[in-house]
Simulated assay, not measured.
Amino acid sequence: MGSAPEHVHTEGDLGHQHATEVTQSNERRIRLVFLLTAGYALVQAIGGWIAGSLALIADAGHMISDSAALLLALVAYRVARWPIDAQRTYGFHRVRVLAALANGATLLLLVAWIAWEAVQRINQPAEILAGPMLIVATIGLLVNLIGAYALWSGDSGDSNLRGALLHVVGDLLGSIGAITAAVGIMLTGWAILDPLLSVLVAGLVIRSAWGLVSDSIRVLLQATPKGIDATEIEASLRDLPGIAEVGHFHAWTLTDESIIATVHVSADQGADPLSLPPLVASWLQETRGIDHVTVQVDPRGSLLTRHT
């Protein structure tokens, strides 16, 4: 073996998309549900303000968070079609991550306001117009039923569509909760049901909002994706035939469904260095689902982690 490192790379085509192929039908379904959800969120916010219902306003925040998730799904469809160029060799996939971070941060502020207002109303209950509250919540139930049916009847193999359906189901439960609270207030006069429900809905919002923020930060910091243990992977690669040493394994997320990795290896005595990149890339794809791999073959003895 020569003294100079052999830089051997195995990667997918730069324009290759790793997500499930999206049909125009699925995109139209998500666009329809986005328009329904965003439109109703506005109606619900106005109705909640008129009825004095914090629960409706909180659920409007929940609908806004799900509208944002649907919008991000639409962005993902469109971004996947944008061509790469010499300055953006990975394309524009991180646009979705930036949008998710902004959306999550905004929703956390909304949750803080809802929690503060709920505490005030629990201490000093306000008058709730249960009739208008019931009407707005019932409209929401119908909107969410339509949205759930539109998504459920689409391609179940599309991860964007499945994610959108889960968000709409969450909105459906929120509408049922608002209807229950409105009926409870009408029957009992207990206005405290409204702020109590708003706290429960805020819990749903903060869960999704924090998930958006934390996942976005992980991606932007190029943290190792969840479920990927660099030390364990290096140890496993070291056991593959023909590999003497493994080191400098790095992995990061490009998009929700695309992980990129780089790793350095060296060949055992008598092994063909050119056989190692496809071997390593194939193993990482089959065992860890990493389908965009760059492998560098270095001279034996140049890596700190050695085969034992």
Rank of each mutant, 00 (worst) to 15 (best):
L107Q: 14
I50V: 15
P277D: 02
T23Y: 00
A58L: 00
G289C: 02
W116A: 06
L142H: 00
R78H: 12
L240H: 04
V8M: 07
S266Y: 10
S266M: 07
L187Q: 15
D59A: 11
V33M: 01
G211T: 13
A130V: 03
V263K: 01
T89W: 02
V205D: 09
G2D: 14
A150K: 01
L142Y: 09
V136S: 02
R81H: 12
A41K: 00
R300I: 06
G242V: 05
A115V: 15
V43L: 15
L141M: 14
W283H: 15
T106I: 05
E6Y: 07
R288S: 04
I260E: 08
A68I: 12
S159D: 11
A115I: 13
N144V: 05
V169K: 12
I50E: 05
T294H: 14
V265P: 06
A38C: 09
L161A: 04
L129Y: 09
R300Y: 04
S275V: 00
A191N: 15
L173I: 14
R306T: 13
V293H: 09
A99W: 04
I217M: 10
R218P: 03
V22L: 10
S275M: 05
A235K: 15
D155F: 01
P277L: 05
H62C: 08
E27K: 03
T89N: 12
R31G: 10
G184R: 10
L240P: 04
